Amino acid sequence: MTILHGHSAALRSKRRREGLRTLAFLSPWLIGFSVFFVYPLVSTVYFSFMKYDGFKPPTFNGLTNWTYVFSQYPFFWAAMSNTLWLVAIMVTARVIFGLGIGMLITKIKTGAGFFRTFFYLPYLAPPVAATLAFAFLLNPGTGPVNQLLGDLGLPQPGWFNDPTWSKPALTLLALWGIGDLMVIFMAALLDVPKEQYEAAELDGAGSWKRFRYVTLPNISPIVLFAVVTGVIQTMQYYTQPIIAGKTASGVIGAGAGQIYEPGYPGKSTLTLPQLVYTLGFQRFDTGSACVVALVLFALSMAFTALLMRRRSGLITVED
């Protein structure tokens, strides 16, 4: 009995040492996770129920901030609608376009290196510079794109000056910088076993069936990765729409004191991250800014959870 008791104590001691060793290796991640995720999240929830301007001590005001954002703040639902539109349209367009470009380049026999560089370089352009360039190209009055469309007898959209066309213009800007997804999809496509394509051809499968039953199942985890990261990035979409709106409205380059209406034109380029900045750092309404930030967090988690389901929509991850 004494021997068994000693053996059990030694086993517990060994497990304790292994647990402490594991905890020591995990400690950098645990500290970073606690400091940079848990603490900010808890603080955001806390301040969402407080009246706080960053100067005076916070005071509890219940659901006032939540009621204000959802029912009284005039920009919230427009920003919500724009953000969801960009998630649905822009992310889908980027994934399809990036996959198409990746497939095209993998089929090219000569000059593949040139085309890889050609399509990847726009991704390296700074977001502000790229947006300013697009605002110039798509200027409805003097931009070369509308001049070309006019010469061809085609309609000339207002682009960033038209609420109907501002988000499609942002989508075109996102497709121009498709180099990141192109590289990811190219790596996945080149990893698909050629034997499966040969077997499909022997069975008489055409191009579409080879893509549907060979290519797509093999790259579906990469498609899932592209969609999830695209949703998260689009939920944080801030720089391009605000620069496009300011440029189109003439605020950039104007004199001091120029008033800028958020989301120009007609709130069509307003996104939820812009509201977080406007409420928190321009109006010093930290409580309302935290409410919008929590809405963004909840939406991101909901979309990610939906997409990560093993059989969600058109994307399936095989065992």
Rank of each mutant, 00 (worst) to 15 (best):
M1A: 15
H5Q: 13
A9C: 15
K14W: 15
R15H: 13
R16T: 11
R16I: 11
R16W: 13
T22V: 15
V38S: 09
V38R: 04
L41T: 12
V42F: 11
V42D: 10
S43W: 12
S48M: 10
M50C: 11
M50G: 07
K56E: 15
T59C: 14
T64Y: 15
W66F: 09
T67L: 15
Y73T: 06
P74F: 07
W77M: 07
M80N: 13
L86H: 06
A88M: 04
M90D: 12
A93K: 10
R94N: 00
R94G: 07
G98N: 00
M103V: 12
L104C: 10
K107P: 14
I108T: 06
K109I: 13
G111S: 00
F114W: 15
F114K: 00
F115C: 03
A125P: 04
P126C: 03
P127F: 14
V128A: 07
T131R: 01
L132Q: 02
F134G: 04
L137D: 06
L138Y: 00
N139C: 07
N139F: 03
N139V: 09
N139W: 02
P140D: 01
G141F: 14
Q147A: 13
Q147S: 15
L149N: 05
G153M: 00
G153H: 07
L154A: 07
L154D: 08
L154F: 07
Q156W: 09
D162T: 05
W165Y: 12
S166V: 03
P168R: 02
A169W: 08
L170Y: 02
G177W: 00
G177N: 06
G177Y: 01
I178Y: 06
D180Q: 14
D180H: 15
I184V: 06
I184P: 03
P193I: 05
P193F: 01
E195L: 12
Y197I: 04
E198P: 03
A199W: 02
A199H: 06
L202S: 03
W208D: 10
R210P: 05
F211R: 08
Y213A: 05
V214P: 01
I219W: 11
I219D: 00
F225A: 00
F225Q: 08
F225H: 02
A226N: 06
T229K: 05
Q236T: 12
Y237N: 02
Y237I: 07
T239A: 10
Q240L: 11
P241G: 03
I243T: 09
A248N: 01
A248I: 06
V251R: 08
V251N: 05
G253K: 02
A254V: 01
A254F: 08
Q258L: 15
Q258E: 15
Y260E: 09
P262I: 04
G263F: 07
Y264I: 05
P265S: 01
P265E: 00
P265D: 06
T269P: 09
L275T: 06
L275Q: 03
L275E: 03
Y277G: 12
T278F: 15
G280L: 03
Q282I: 13
Q282M: 14
F284A: 11
F284W: 10
F284N: 12
T286C: 13
A289S: 08
V291L: 01
A298K: 10
M301T: 05
M301C: 14
M301Y: 14
F303C: 08
L306Y: 13
R311M: 14
S312W: 09
S312M: 11
L314N: 09
I315W: 03
V317N: 09
